[in-house]
């Protein structure tokens, strides 16, 4: 049992941390600016200098995108772990990333003239198709939507879609383009994408927070939940919907970054206890903080070159994860 003061202070602390790394991300990069310039750029609608322009048109969407994507990936990881009762679950497990990947490949192969935004939306549709298929498959039999059928259907879909998109990429010689898309990282996130996808991500995050108290039911058996008068299929449908929005968009924007969704919910749980009412907000904040700082480090390691930030996330995350796992044995 973690006391309320601990919960509140942890949430405040991680909120402050997020603001700090966000400001640092705006200030530091290949081009160094002062905090004063950052402040001016944020306040004025008409940037006066090149520095202010860089901050407003390049760094700001990038940092906002990183925060939203990080929160989204971490949140969908927590959703998946509760709904599938599987501590190793994330959106990759349900074939949602593979669905987004396949649609992305299809767009690049057959409609190369589509804008980046249109292609991104295509990938989100792909994620939704995956989720829909998984739902259809796991409710084909008369068994209810239970965690095992959900995961099995996800693995099957994932395998099929990955094979299809790799085959297609090979045939149409798209390997390079896809790699570019995926390794482009957060640098490719633009205002035009954010203007459309940002609000949707925000709605997804709010829905996830609203759903959080219900996720505690994942600790009970299905029988127990049902006898408490709760509808499991409805809860699972809601959770899956949120995962599609959050991870579908994230994958479409920056490619598959599995580690955030897997790791951040565990870190949050270690810090704040077992109640998803507390876990979820902390997960979102930590996910955003981790992604923003990883992106900052990726830009600073070897400027002006960018190190792929997935690698940075693993480099920060894994040692911390191992440290926590060793500190509290029996919790992993």
């Amino acid at each position: 049992m973690k006391s309320m003061t601990r919960v509140t202070s942890l949430l405040c602390l991680s909120g402050v941390l997020l603001i700090l790394v966000t400001l640092a991300s705006l200030r530091w990069g290949a081009d160094q600016v002062s905090f004063n310039t950052v402040w001016q750029a944020l306040r004025s609608t008409h940037p006066q200098s090149l520095d202010q322009q860089i901050i407003r048109t390049i760094r700001l969407p990038r940092v906002l995108g990183a925060a939203l994507i990080g929160a989204g990936l971490a949140g969908s990881g927590a959703l998946m772990q509760s709904v599938t009762k599987n501590p190793l679950a994330d959106s990759g497990l349900l074939g949602i990333n593979a669905g987004a990947g396949l649609m992305l490949t299809l767009c690049l192969a057959f409609f190369p003239k589509l804008s980046t935004l249109q292609t991104t939306i295509g990938a989100v549709v792909g994620a939704a198709i995956s989720a829909g298929l998984i739902f259809a498959i796991s409710s084909l039999k008369q068994v209810q939507l239970n965690p095992t059928t959900l995961v099995l259907a996800g693995i099957a879909i994932s395998g099929l879609f990955t094979a299809l998109s790799e085959g297609l990429a090979l045939v149409s010689q798209l390997k390079q383009d896809l790699a570019f898309w995926y390794f482009g990282g957060l640098g490719a996130v633009s205002w035009s994408q954010l203007r459309v996808l940002g609000p949707i991500l925000l709605i997804g995050l709010v829905l996830t927070l609203l759903l959080a108290p219900q996720l505690n039911l994942g600790y009970l058996t299905d029988d127990a939940v049902q006898s408490l008068g709760k509808s499991l299929p409805l809860l699972r449908l809601g959770a899956l919907g949120c995962v599609v929005i959050l991870s579908g968009i994230s994958v479409a924007l920056v490619g598959t970054i599995t580690f955030v969704g897997l790791m951040v919910p565990h870190i949050a749980r270690w810090l704040i206890g077992t109640n998803y009412r507390h876990i979820m907000p902390l997960t979102l904040l930590l996910g955003a903080t981790l992604t923003v700082s990883a992106d900052l480090i990726a830009r600073l390691i070897n400027p002006p070159q960018e190190t792929p930030f997935g690698i940075v996330i693993s480099l920060i995350g894994v040692p911390f994860f191992i440290y926590l796992a060793r500190k509290e044995p029996g919790n992993l």
Binding site: M1, K85, N216, Y219, T221, D223, A224, Q226, G229, N331
Partner: peptide
């Protein structure tokens, strides 16, 4: 309705294996 029934009938199924990190307080509040 499921919720109305849950106010008349409490059930303790045979296996309740999943809960582990929950505290007694948290479990009872369910």
């Amino acid at each position: 309705k499921a919720k109305a029934l849950a106010k008349k009938l409490a059930v303790l199924p045979q296996t309740n294996a999943t809960a582990s990190d929950l505290t007694v307080d948290e479990l009872v509040s369910f």
